[in-house]
């Protein structure tokens, strides 16, 4: 029998509105508190009966973390963009720092897939911190090699790579994400390819690529490939990246390398109407599409 005193209904009693990072993480200390950003994913958890023990909602809108700007020290080689964790999808897509720039083309593609009602409130921070593999945006951010600035009680402000975040997102459960940083260099471009059952909706499988071409040789200088909706958390395809690095991005090479990818991914999770076998079959195709698109974009620059 269940504990009768335990309240099984989502029934928070307090909304806390910290005005400093320090205050915010203090509130996160107890097990019954939860950060609320755009709330588009939080309340669905609540309705699925997964937040019964949450009593305090932590509103982070007073923390001044909605912004998008260029980092102050910029080299001509690398341009860094800083996006506050509370920035909405809509604010990102309408920013001139993102728009029309091939290095962020994938980002825009991912953001535009969700409906306006989501874009207007969902935040980049909430999207990452949900730590699921079927949201679009984190897949591209992963491919862009984003650096995440967290604030925790122990360490204060600190930077980690998105790679290490996705290795074990649970580690950051009680930290506050403040900022996402990503940089671009000339000759680089990104892309995002998503397969859904309908033309909108959650992905059955998706891939994002970021590619930097060597200015003179036009070989692949650097490449990051990430897949989503295939495994439990988003995954990088290091082996495929390795094989393509310093190669000439001909369609034959790309296709050949992509075909190997299916065997490199394990623990593929089936979705409704898409078995593991199907996902395996389409993975190389999506990957090829993502890479060739990114290469095309980088070449056009």
């Amino acid at each position: 029998m269940r504990d009768l005193e335990l309240n099984m209904v989502f029934d928070p009693s307090e909304v806390l509105r910290p005005s400093s990072f320090q205050d915010a993480v203090e509130t996160l200390d107890s097990s019954d508190s939860k950060i609320v950003a755009g709330n588009t994913s939080l309340y669905s958890l609540a309705r699925k009966g997964r937040l019964e023990n949450i009593k305090k909602l932590v509103d982070i809108s007073k923390l001044g973390i909605s912004y998008i700007k260029e980092a102050e020290s910029q080299t001509s080689e690398e341009k860094k963009i800083l996006v506050g964790a509370g920035t909405t999808f809509q604010e990102i897509t309408s920013s001139s720092l993102i728009n029309g720039r091939p290095e962020y083309a994938g980002l825009k593609e991912a953001l535009n897939k969700s409906p306006p009602q989501i874009r207007n409130v969902a935040t980049i921070g909430g999207s990452i911190c949900s730590a699921v593999s079927f949201y679009d945006l984190p897949i591209v951010l992963f491919a862009l090699g984003t650096t995440l600035k967290f604030f925790s009680k122990k360490e204060g402000e600190h930077l980690i790579t998105i790679d290490s975040f996705f290795q074990n997102p649970a580690l950051y459960g009680k930290s506050l994400l403040i900022e996402c940083q990503f940089s671009s260099s000339p000759n680089s471009a990104s892309s995002f390819v998503k397969l859904c059952r309908r033309m909108s909706g959650y992905a059955v499988a998706m891939t994002a690529a970021r590619i930097k071409l060597d200015r003179t040789s036009r070989e692949i200088d650097d490449i990051r490939l990430v897949i989503g909706a295939m495994t439990k958390t988003p995954q990088r395809l290091n082996q495929v990246e390795e094989e393509l690095r310093h190669k000439e991005p001909s369609i034959e090479t790309i296709t050949r390398m992509c075909e190997k990818s299916a065997d490199l991914v394990h623990d593929i999770i089936p979705s409704v109407h898409a078995s593991t076998a199907y996902k395996k079959r389409v993975l190389p195709i999506l990957l090829r599409e993502a890479i060739t698109t990114a290469v095309e974009r980088a070449t056009e620059r």
Binding site: N39, T40, Y43, D59, S61, Q90, P116, Q117, N120
Partner: peptide, 12 residues
Amino acid sequence: RPVYSCLMPTWK
């Protein structure tokens, strides 16, 4: 701007 009212906490 359009939002889903079913996902918007009233206090927000």
